[in-house]
Structure formats: structure tokens, C-alpha cells
């Protein structure tokens, strides 16, 4: 019996470091949240993260990608606390499927730009796309990325789409379109104003806003996910509210968004 007890004691002692590690892990999980972020918000998000950390001490882990992809992932149980989409439809469908706390609220409106490293006359508007010098035009996949959807809409509305369809190349999301433009693999591309204004790409090539009558202004909505509600309710709520605060608004403005 005595022997058994000392065995148990030994086991417990051996387990102690593991308990400590678990505690540290649990503590870390407690003081951070994980956010799925539409690629166009990427650069603004880095500043939002810093600002949020400064005022609350809470770490924000971010994953950047296409809103549609995140939407699918969240429906399949991806552990994101908050979803910052590039439109209203994807977070709205999450809400309808029961994967979001409430209906999405727009945190900013995004603007579409044409961006090129080459010497095209962007003042011509979209008709520059039918120039003979333009061989390849990049846009985000219209099926999954809202900026791509609006870009396709703008080309259709201006009657150019059928003429230039064969020049189109699709990126997984807005960041891949930026890579295609920056590596010179396409001549011109559609992008978000929030990307071309970011420090990382500032001064590379030139850009011009797409005529805003040609597409619907891109209302970008955010929701607290079911996962966040169940695992991280107070931190998720704090971060969500922060998105609509004055300091977040100042950052959104600096990145070319229009405020709700």
C-alpha cells in the first residue's frame, strides 16, 4: 500500500511541469483572440492590432484571406472569434446559419482602384483596359472575393466585359492580385484603395479610383462568431466594439475607407 502511494506521489511530481505548461497555455488563450480578416483590411489591421494591444493588453492573432473562404471555414467549425469580412453577404450568411452572434454591422466602406506599374493612362477610366497594350488584367475571384465581384460588375456596367474577358486573370484574394501586379505578371489589376495606400506598396506604380457609379460601394461587415461567443465572449465583444471606436475610425480613414 505504502509502495502504491509513493508511486502515485512520483507520478504526480512528474506531471507537475506539464500542469504548469497547461496553465501557461490556458492563460495565453485567455488573453488573446483570433480574428479572420479579409485581405483588403490586412494593412489597416496591423495598426488596429497595435492600437488595441496598447489600450487593452489583449493580443489579436490574425489570419488574412478571401472572405468567402473564411465564411466556408467558419461554417465548418474554424476557431475564429471574430470575422472581419470584405462585404455584408458572407457574414450575413453566417448569421443566418447560426454561426454568428448577430447581424453584421458595417465597420467601413471600401473603394475599388485600378493599379498598374506600367505607363497606362488611368485618367481614361476603365476603358484603359481595352488598350492593345494591356494583355493581362488581374482581379480577385468574383465568386469569393467581394472586390472581385464589384470589379466584374464595373466592367459589365461599362460594357467592357465581353471585349476584355479573355485578358482576365483571377487571384485567390486581393493579396494575390497585388503579387501579380507587383511581379509584373499582369499589366494592370483591380485592387482595394486600402492596399495601395499601405506603406508596404506606397510609391509602387500608380493607381486611380474606379468610377463609383459603376459598382455598389463595398460595405464591409464584421460579426462575432459562434466560436468567440462560446469560448471568448468578453474579449471578442471588446474587440468588436473597438472596431467602431474613434481610434479605429481614424485608422480606417487613413487607409482610404469611407466610414459608416
Amino acid at each position: 500500500m505504502n509502495h502504491m502511494n509513493s508511486m502515485g506521489e512520483m507520478k504526480r511530481r512528474r506531471l507537475r511541469p506539464f500542469a504548469l505548461i497547461l496553465l501557461v497555455l490556458a492563460w495565453n488563450a485567455y488573453s488573446q483572440i483570433t480574428v479572420a480578416v479579409a485581405a483588403n483590411v490586412q494593412f489597416a489591421m496591423e495598426e488596429l492590432k497595435t492600437e488595441f494591444k496598447k489600450s487593452t493588453g489583449i493580443d489579436v492573432k490574425t489570419s488574412y484571406g478571401a472572405s468567402g473562404s473564411f465564411c466556408t471555414q467558419i461554417k465548418n467549425g474554424a476557431p475564429f472569434d471574430v470575422f472581419i469580412s470584405a462585404d455584408m453577404d458572407f457574414p450575413d450568411s453566417l448569421y443566418k446559419w447560426g454561426f454568428a452572434k448577430e447581424k453584421p454591422k458595417p465597420y467601413a466602406y471600401g473603394k475599388l482602384v485600378l493599379w498598374t506599374l506600367k505607363d497606362f493612362d488611368l485618367d481614361k477610366g476603365l476603358s484603359v483596359l481595352s488598350d492593345s497594350g494591356v494583355a493581362k488584367i488581374a482581379l480577385p475571384d468574383p465568386k469569393r472575393a467581394p472586390y472581385g465581384r464589384e470589379a466584374a460588375k464595373a466592367m459589365k456596367k461599362s460594357g467592357l466585359y465581353d471585349k476584355i474577358e479573355s485578358k482576365l486573370v483571377y487571384g485567390e484574394n486581393i493579396s494575390q492580385v497585388s503579387q501579380y501586379i507587383l511581379t509584373g505578371n499582369v499589366d494592370i489589376g483591380f485592387n482595394a484603395k486600402s492596399i495601395v495606400l499601405a506603406g508596404e506598396v506606397a510609391g509602387k506604380g500608380k493607381w486611380k479610383e474606379v468610377d463609383s457609379t459603376l459598382y455598389d460601394k463595398i460595405a464591409q461587415g464584421a460579426v462575432i462568431c459562434k466560436y468567440g461567443l462560446e469560448n471568448n465572449p468578453s474579449l471578442s465583444q471588446r474587440f468588436y466594439e473597438f472596431l467602431f471606436s474613434d481610434s479605429a475610425h481614424a485608422i480606417f480613414l487613413r487607409y482610404g475607407y469611407v466610414l459608416p
Partner: peptide
């Protein structure tokens, strides 16, 4: 292919 294909 996803990186260089352009999904046309």
C-alpha cells in the same frame, strides 16, 4: 498551379 495559374 494555384500560385501561377491565375484560375482562368
Amino acid at each position: 498551379a494555384l500560385m501561377v495559374g491565375g484560375k482562368i
